[in-house]
Computed example of a mutant assay.
Amino acid sequence: RKIRVIMAENNLTYLAEFVLLGFSDLPNLHGFLFGVFLVIYLCILMGNGLLIVITKVDPSLQTPMYFFLGNFSFLEICYTSVTIPKMLADLWSQKTTISFVACAVQTCFLYILGGAECLLLAVMAYDRYVAICKPLYYPLIMNNKICIELVVASWMIGVPILIEETYLIFSLNFCGPNKINHIFCEAPPLLKLACGDTYKIEVSVHVIALLFVLIPFLLIFTSYLKIITTILKLPSTSGRTKAFSTCSSHLMVVTLFYGSGSIVYLQPRSFQSAESGKVLSLFYTTVTPMLNPVIYSLRNKDVVAALRKLLPKSIGSLNN
């Protein structure tokens, strides 16, 4: 159902709600998809929640690296909670409408939290650079105050920019169809529905994406270039292996998140298709947050040891 608000003075028509098409082309699979995404969401909550707990309670993980990991896990929970609950509600109720205001709020939070993830991943790369390339200065450079300031900066830097960007997107005149061929609200599918010239807004979206994707990525790339150069100079094989193992988890998460996100936001509009956009968006909003705890658990001996210490205690307390 299409609800419209008519502005008689300037003869413009504005949509009051959108329809998220989502998985409408797979009506017989809605129940199955609901179950799949519910399991994925629960895995994200439990996996990342467990990482937050162990980084707080285990004495061996009271280091900057795990402080950033705990914050990143919390950010992953917030990020997925912007999209997955609405997706689950749509699959369950078969009602896929979203109000204009709710769509704008979802887009805004998605961008703020996504931007914070990009920046925090860059901070985590810098932490590894200091730890491996300047180990003697590591406690001095990455002190508690600096770590907190870097996390706060990661969360807050993008807020005014991305609020303004969301305002510009939703200030466009959506006078045509109200069906968004996507699973949640974000710029690429929304711009296809806007009337009039959207070129300036599209350029703005790409510029903001470049700022929050390319600049942190270049910082990460530079950090790891210096890290790899330093590691290769280490005399012992065991030292090189240990140094690589502390970085491999972060590199895998960076590749998954940046790879899918950059394809969606940095490729020209003419090359974008609705179906590929859905798949890639699901990847960086759902799959990567689910894999984050798995990657860090499997690739990090300290995390595995902390989990082994925590889980028996939890099971014992339940038995008692």
Score class of each variant (00 low, 15 high):
Ser171Phe: 03
Lys233Gln: 15
Leu211Asn: 09
Val39Thr: 04
Thr286Trp: 00
Ile157Pro: 08
Met124Pro: 05
Ser273Asn: 07
Leu168Phe: 08
Cys247Trp: 03
Ala8Gln: 07
Ser248Ile: 15
Val105Gly: 03
Ser73Cys: 15
Val159Asp: 01
Val19Ile: 14
Thr237Trp: 09
Ser270Pro: 09
Val303Trp: 12
Met156Pro: 11
Gly316Trp: 01
Ile263Ala: 11
Ser99Ile: 14
Asp25Gly: 02
Met252Cys: 14
Ser273Phe: 09
Lys233Val: 15
Leu251Trp: 12
Leu110Asp: 01
Gly70Lys: 02
Gly316Phe: 05
Ser93Asp: 04
Val279Gly: 00
Ile52Lys: 10
Phe221Asp: 12
Pro64Ile: 01
Ile40Trp: 02
Ala122Gln: 12
Val53Phe: 02
Lys134Phe: 01
Gly114Asp: 00
Gly47Leu: 12
Ile180Asp: 01
Gly158Lys: 04
Ser273Trp: 05
Leu234Ile: 13
Leu45His: 09
Ala209Thr: 06
Ile208Glu: 11
Ser81Ile: 10
Met290Arg: 02
Val5Pro: 00
Val53Lys: 02
Thr288Tyr: 06
Ser245Tyr: 07
Val39Arg: 00
Val152Gln: 04
Ser93His: 02
Leu214Asn: 11
Leu307Pro: 07
Leu88Asp: 06
Arg240Cys: 10
Leu256Gln: 03
Val203Leu: 13
Val130Cys: 07
Cys247Tyr: 00
Lys179Phe: 13
Met124Ser: 14
